[in-house]
Amino acid sequence: MATWLEGLIALVLIIGGVFLLIGSIGLVRLPDLYTRLHGPTKATTLGMAGLLLASSVVSSITQGSISVHEWLITLFLLITAPVSANMIAKTAMHHDLTPWKRTKGQELVDPASRQAPPSDHHSVKDGKLP
């Protein structure tokens, strides 16, 4: 393997690893569930893409033929990461999890948990599931 190619792969690997770590740091550091969702959905997806790119190039070189099946995992994660984030956020809203005190637009949580339009947030205040 040429030195420049090896260096490039190493760089991509380390960038991917750093993004994975940043996603997990966000999970620990951020103040409430809604902000914590951002770390894993975004940083982790990009980190995985970097790692799988490196893996694809390495196995292409060692096998002598182009290996692209790693992209299947990337594709799968790109499709599923927003769906699972959405489901977790939905669950949190339906369970009336209170957001961080500095969050703007907190009055939207109540209509969102009833799947109502944002205008009638003062009509029903019990916040129970319909």
Binding site: G17, S24, M48, L51, A54, S55, S59, S84
Partner: peptide, 23 residues
């Protein structure tokens, strides 16, 4: 929900570890 999110992130990280072991 925090715990579910942690598990979700954990499985993605373990995929990364397995891919890395493959490399």
């Amino acid at each position: 929900q925090d715990r579910i999110l942690a598990l979700d992130t954990m499985y993605i990280n373990s995929i990364a570890l397995i891919i890395l072991y493959g490399i």
